[in-house]
Design a protein around this nucleic acid. Structure first.
Lengths: 190, 190
DNA sequence: ACCTGAACACCGTTCAAGT
DNA sequence: ACCTGAACACCGTTCAAGT
């Protein structure tokens, strides 16, 4: 690999670490450059601006999410378990790295073609799992994309509410986010 | 009302307008002060720092949310319709003012006692509606807080996914956020 | 009690210049 | 093609001083 590509990757990696350590405010081009042994405006040779650098971080996180889903699904005994495993993996990456979560699921201005493509891959994978469970009679019939949207909304919403302390933390909700996924799957499969 | 209280309200109102107009980056203390005919550091006499000013904006938005739920519920013919009306009202305020959404449901550092109290009021109201629908046999039995958490997760998650373009906008999901609430209520009440 | 003006440290971004 | 150093406009925050 060329030296140029490796410094680009180093910038993205440094930005991701800073995001986890201290939140979006801690990601400054000066600190990113410093950690890569480079000047504070060297990033402009690899990214249009700071937003583009953050988008690269988000793309990397979405790629990791898809990999995590595939890994968990590989151990699932049947199609419904596969859906459950994928949803829990989705929710985990949406909760635990709390800083990256805000980046991934916050609002993005502009085009962000790379981001949309990577998000589309994760989505298509989920839909395929749901369709398989429907075909096996383990989930109710109907448009698989629409049912996937319902399941993903619960995983996404429960993770989001937990992340801001509106669930389980102070007793509200009486359930952890992961248990809400199971609650819904139980209602749907019975 | 005293002159001091009215300038405090003016600062909060100006910050809310700026947030809607141009997002969090547009909310600068200099512009807030300017719109209130006051210097750029006058806000420090009413709020500890910029975060405290934004918290006051969020508290105001949560108060509006509770009022919106009550207004929609007043016209509901039965208990299940009341739950549905409240959830749709919750979702609307979580989607339409897209800038305030990020503020309300983003991560908050520190204590934010005012914010938690106001959020608790909205939550308690939702739980009471769900419990009433359960008592009327229109929703499945079980811990009302846990069932409310499931319903709210769908409303919250679907609104969040739609806000970032992962739902309905580019065809993904094949359903609008409001329809996903109805889908879930249909599964639960049948 | 509330507000101002100047000042400080910091940031994103630009640009001319170097290799 | 990639990087640097200086510079610009802007921001949050502090502080001494005013009424």
């Amino acid at each position: 690999m060329s030296k140029g590509a490796s410094t680009r990757d180093a910038l993205v990696a440094a930005a991701a670490v800073l995001l986890e350590e201290g939140g979006p405010a801690a990601v400054t081009l000066r600190e990113v450059g410093s950690r890569c042994g480079v000047s504070h405006n060297a990033p402009y040779k690899h990214f249009a601006d700071k937003d583009a650098l953050l988008e690269a971080v988000a793309v990397r996180a979405l790629d990791a999410l898809t990999c995590a889903m595939r890994a968990r699904v590989a151990a699932a005994p049947d199609d419904l378990s596969a859906v459950s495993a994928a949803l829990h993996a989705y929710q985990d990456t949406a909760v635990t790295p709390s800083r990256t979560r805000a980046l991934l699921y916050g609002e993005w201005r502009g085009d962000h073609a790379d981001l949309r493509r990577q998000a589309g891959a994760a989505w298509a994978y989920l839909v395929a799992l749901v369709a398989a469970a429907q075909a096996a009679g383990q989930l109710p019939e109907g448009d698989p994309e629409r049912l996937t949207a319902l399941l993903r909304s619960v995983a996404h919403g429960a993770a989001g509410l937990a992340a801001i302390g509106h669930l389980a933390a102070d007793g509200k909700g009486h359930a952890k986010p992961a248990e809400l996924i199971d609650d819904l799957l139980r209602f749907l499969s019975s």
